[in-house]
């Protein structure tokens, strides 16, 4: 398997551990960590630090009712939980859980490019993109930060080359043209914390329709 060379920045892992990251970015972190031992270790280190801070916090009063509810619950028979989704093909379990199925519901964007929107909320959006080999995604800038995690194939842009497992962290001022590598179609998970803005006229017209 190809070595992952583009990892998650520390602040993203720490924000995830602390619960301060929006849903779309959290999905990228969980999906990357599922396939990157190094970032898994870094996440565990952040949680170790979180645990140390937790232990050192001041104790606040808790109600007797809470104690009763917890201890009454110990002997309750509960139905076993459904097992967590397993990795299927190129999709880690974290992504399968999000999709609610083992295949994305692709929608064509024309030119062979497809997308499947996974989530959208005030804090951003996450979607899967399918880009045929050698094809460029229209020039775009984004109002916020964009994370792109490669699941299959590769892409390159002005900043470098990204293969399976790599994450690109594109700042809001990056004006780039990601182009899929040759060999096989590039499938990636892309998340932003603001809507994308396309520079070309046609994509801009399509934006409200396709929510790209």
């Amino acid at each position: 398997m190809k070595q992952i060379t583009h990892h998650l920045p520390e602040w993203l892992i720490r924000s995830y551990a602390a619960g301060s990251l929006g849903h779309a970015f959290s999905l990228v972190v969980a999906t990357h960590v599922s396939q990157c031992d190094e970032c898994r270790a870094r996440l565990e280190a952040e949680e170790a630090a979180g645990g140390v801070v937790l232990e050192g916090l001041e104790a606040v009063d808790t109600s007797d009712d809470l104690r009763a509810r917890v201890f009454d619950g110990l002997d309750e028979d509960i139905a076993p939980e459904a097992p967590a989704p397993q990795r299927t093909g190129i999709y880690p379990g974290a992504l399968i859980a999000e999709m609610g199925s083992d295949q994305p519901r692709w929608r064509s964007l024309g030119g062979g490019i497809r997308q499947a929107i996974l989530s959208e909320d005030k804090q951003g959006s996450a979607r899967l993109l399918y880009i045929p080999q050698g094809m460029a995604v229209p020039d775009h800038t984004h109002g916020g930060l964009e994370l792109t995690l490669v699941l299959q194939g590769s892409f390159h842009d002005e900043t470098g080359e990204f293969g399976v497992g790599d994450v690109e962290v594109a700042e809001d001022d990056l004006d780039h043209t990601p182009t899929a590598g040759m060999g096989e179609a590039c499938i990636c998970l892309a998340a932003t914390d603001a809507p994308l803005q396309f520079k070309g006229l046609l994509p801009r017209l399509l934006q409200p329709i396709f929510r790209i």
Partner: peptide
């Protein structure tokens, strides 16, 4: 371990949808 469980549960509750967690 407990810190992680607490975050997972807190986020599930606040967002009313499962927090994405690593495999």
């Amino acid at each position: 371990w407990i810190y992680r469980i607490a975050r997972n549960r807190q986020i599930d509750v606040i967002r009313r949808r499962p927090r994405p967690v690593p495999d």
